[in-house]
Design a protein around this nucleic acid. Structure first.
Lengths: 227, 227, 227, 227
DNA sequence: AATGAATGAGATTTCATTCAT
DNA sequence: CATGAATGAAATCTCATTCAT
């Protein structure tokens, strides 16, 4: 994942270096133009290698993207798990993971959009969001975020919603906001990040002793009628 | 495949029919394969028309997508505004709009993913998420959701977060969940929808008189260090 | 050949009128854009008829052009022969015919360029320049200009050059000049026309009793060396 | 098919070889069928290369033709100027240039017709015939033939006609005759060429002390009446 | 008779992949 | 190993021609 390598001469371990250049270029371009919008020749140019060289490192364009996705995804997961302590309180574990996504997206915008592109492509139709944190060669354990949710529900700290809904409530806003940030639509300062994380927690936490209003209102359009 | 054909004469209906077939096929295929992943020939086959016919109705592939996006986006907005009452309480208006997104996505999965694809493509880089509800020929009023947020903040009912963050907290989870629903990963029943909507409200609402915990914890990875 | 018909209602002899509209449009457009550069649809639009209508009057695009060429070519010939008197002096007959080409080109620029286009196309490769004045259903007599040249040579009034060379010397400058005129590069007034015609005569006339210089000069590049 | 390949190494020769093959095929086919009548696939086949290869050397079909025209036109001009001496008498300079056109056309029939096609196409509408000899990167001097005419008029050796008319009288017959020659309608021997060149000179030269007849005769059809 | 919507063959152009150097 | 010229399959788009109305 070392991209900004500052070496000058193309000597030593440059065999791997070319591969890194290709990976870096692919992530950058596909994150912006998408898979079909990024020709191999463009990647070769951006990477500063010959087009044929790419085929020394990757079987074809499909596996170029697939291999890179796996690598990026695992690096992403490792980032999230860095400093993660399963013995901490539910809320802290939740915030740790969500903050990690935030930080990863801000610090690695190309990788972040690349992952997004991947999930929104036919590739990602089979793979799905819940696989986001696994299959990196480690133990086939449950995804940390799902563990947090399960534990939190057992402790009645987290709402009784389907896992998919909880994940959506937790990750959805972050992905949205990071994309806006990458697009330059918003400047994410620490306060905004913290407050947004707190709001995500508000969304999923089980509130105690409050008389909450029902959400169904008479004015809501009926789900049956199709406009 | 019913294309609102409420016209009387078969001539009129057939005149629009081809166009509708093309639009329908385009939305379906691009929602799945993306713009560059969907050749004109595939659209023609899906629509059951000759490839050349598409160019009778649309200047080129670009305007095919652009024109359809405008149309779909406006229909989407109208759906949301159907039954919307600006005089209702903040929470009701918020829930009305968010529920509308939910319903629209579930009932129009192709259109929903098409819009998503569009925003995630280079097309949507200039247009942005906050434009999602406007530019349909109506009065150039503010986007309803932003109006709700602004009014809610004035009433101290909604958190003091940037608009972009509020929108992310409101829409992000819904988009996430609808996509999972379309992918077949979750069956969205009314209870789940209602509870998720309530959770979205929890995320953005200004809580009163609760001693809330800070979100910054010592165990959080510093935003400076790059993993 | 009546093109600028000023009738209002599409009654009476409009069956022929449509044909004329098509012919007029075809000549105009092909003279400017060439055969392959002029779609049938463009002709239909310019003529103000449906594309299918063209096929009621002409078998296909090829015969559209071929039929029109024959018609235009015959009208052209008739124009030249109008007022032509085979009993007049050689020079007068020559000037009459050449002036006719000039006038025809100036007064019928579209037809003139259409004929040119035709000769420069694969169509005109078989048909050739010497056919320019014949095959209009009349007697298969010699071309008037060639008759003039033959008679002139018999009288030793015209140079002993091959017919093709004489035709080139006579017509070449006129075609050149008319094209420049049509292109707006020169305004052809009567004096210029007359003087140019006189110059054409100078080119082909047999000069008497002058000691003319030879044309071969030592400085001329040898015809053998290819650059 | 020998493309002047006097280079030593096969690498260099082959590098340019494909480009030359494409250029040669393009000139040959377009000279015969015209721009729109010559598909890229036909050029590729004639050149013996893949269709895609053409786009390695030329941006698109337009620039294929434009680039080749510039190249051919410059080579043409250089041929004419080879051995040209501005200090020679008017008549010699005139004959040198005109003979050069003759020779070029006979020796390079494809290039000659290609240039013709170009000028008769919408491309050549802006560029015009009088530009035929310039814009090859050399000094922006006047066109040689126009210089000759201007000098000749100053010396009262050449008729007082507009430049365009003089050019037409000089070049028109040659272009005509060369095209006939290429079409196989006439075999141009040295005598015919020399005599035709002499005739061109007769057309433009200022005759001295001869009582010339007027060109307007009563029998000429008036330029006002349209036949 | 007249129309123009529909078509698909064919034109231009792109691009993943190969292979000679 | 690395390259990038070459390729042809496939994509976008045009247009001559047909045919239902």
């Amino acid at each position: 994942m070392n991209i900004h390598s500052t070496k000058k001469s193309p000597t030593q371990a440059d065999l791997g270096s070319k591969r890194e250049l290709i990976i870096h270029a692919t992530i950058k371009l596909i994150s912006e133009y998408g898979f079909h919008g990024t020709p191999i020749s463009m990647i070769a140019q951006e990477a500063g290698v010959g087009a044929g060289t790419i085929y020394r490192y990757f079987k074809d364009k499909d596996s170029l993207v697939l291999d890179i996705f796996k690598q990026v995804n695992c690096a992403f997961k490792e980032t999230l798990l860095h400093g993660y302590d399963a013995n901490q309180p539910i809320r802290d574990r939740f915030l740790h993971l969500c903050r990690g996504i935030f930080q990863y997206g801000i610090q690695n915008p190309y990788e972040f959009k690349f992952i997004e592109q991947f999930y929104n492509s036919p590739y990602g139709t089979t793979l799905r969001r819940e696989k986001l944190f696994c299959n990196c060669g480690d133990t086939g354990q449950d995804l940390p975020l799902e563990q947090v949710f399960a534990a939190g529900q057992a402790q009645q700290v987290i709402k009784e919603l389907p896992q998919a809904a909880l994940i959506a409530l937790a990750i959805g806003p972050i992905v949205f906001l990071v994309k806006d940030s990458i697009a330059g639509l918003i400047q994410l300062d620490k306060t905004t990040i913290n407050n947004t994380l707190a709001a995500c927690w508000d969304a999923i936490q089980q509130e105690t002793g409050t008389n909450r209003q029902p959400v169904i209102t008479p004015s809501s359009p009926s789900i049956e009628e199709k406009p």
